[in-house]
Amino acid sequence: TKVFYNGTYVEFNNPEKAKKYAEKVAKKVGGTFTEKNGQFHVE
Rank of each mutant, 00 (worst) to 15 (best):
K20W: 11
K2A: 06
V25R: 05
T32Q: 08
E35M: 11
H41A: 05
T1E: 02
K2T: 05
K20R: 13
G38E: 04
E35C: 15
F4Q: 02
K27Q: 12
F33W: 14
K24Q: 13
Y21W: 12
Q39F: 07
K24R: 12
T34D: 04
T32W: 14
N6Q: 10
N14F: 05
E11A: 11
K20P: 02
A22P: 01
K27L: 12
K19N: 03
E35Q: 09
T34M: 10
K27S: 09
A26H: 02
E11C: 15
N37V: 04
Q39S: 13
Y5F: 13
N37Q: 08
A18R: 02
N13M: 12
K19V: 05
F33Y: 12
Y5T: 04
F40S: 01
A22G: 03
K17R: 11
Y9N: 04
F33L: 14
K20A: 14
G38N: 06
V10R: 12
A26I: 04
Q39P: 01
V29Q: 06
K20Q: 13
F33K: 03
F33S: 06
T32A: 07
K19S: 05
G31S: 06
N37F: 09
P15Y: 15
N37L: 08
E43R: 12
N6E: 07
V25T: 07
N14M: 06
E35R: 06
G38Q: 05
V42N: 01
G30V: 04
Y9K: 04
K27C: 14
E16Y: 10
E23D: 07
F40E: 01
V10A: 07
T1C: 15
Q39I: 11
K28N: 09
T34W: 12
G31H: 04
N37Y: 08
T1V: 13
P15I: 12
Y21C: 09
K2H: 05
G7Q: 06
F33I: 15
E35K: 08
K28H: 12
N37G: 09
E35F: 13
T34E: 07
G7D: 07
P15G: 06
Q39A: 14
G31K: 04
T8E: 08
Y5C: 13
K20M: 11
F4V: 05
T8Y: 13
F33T: 06
E16A: 11
N13K: 13
T32L: 08
K19F: 08
T8I: 11
A18Q: 01
G7V: 02
N6G: 10
K27E: 10
G31P: 00
T34G: 05
F33Q: 03
K19T: 03
E23C: 15
F33E: 00
A18F: 02
K36Y: 10
T32D: 05
K36T: 08
T1W: 15
V10K: 12
K36S: 08
K28I: 13
E16Q: 11
E16S: 10
A22Y: 02
T8M: 12
E43A: 10
G7M: 05
K20S: 11
T32N: 07
A22M: 03
G7H: 07
T8A: 10
V42W: 04
V42G: 01
V3P: 00
E11S: 13
K17N: 12
F40V: 03
V25F: 12
T8D: 07
F40I: 08
K24A: 14
V25N: 02
K17H: 13
E35A: 06
E23M: 13
F4P: 00
K20N: 10
K28Q: 13
V25Y: 08
T8L: 10
V29T: 10
Y9L: 06
N37C: 14
K2N: 03
V25W: 13
N14A: 07
V29E: 05
H41Q: 06
A18K: 00
V42C: 03
N6A: 10
K17D: 15
V10P: 00
E16R: 11
A18H: 00
A18W: 02
N6D: 08
V42R: 01
A18V: 00
N37M: 08
A26Y: 03
Y5M: 07
V25M: 14
E43P: 03
H41C: 14
K36N: 07
K17S: 14
Y21E: 03
T34A: 08
H41E: 06
K36C: 14
G30S: 07
T1I: 13
K28T: 11
K24G: 09
E16D: 12
K27V: 08
K20C: 14
E11H: 10
V10C: 14
K28C: 15
A26K: 01
H41M: 09
G7F: 06
P15C: 14
V3N: 00
N6R: 13
T32E: 05
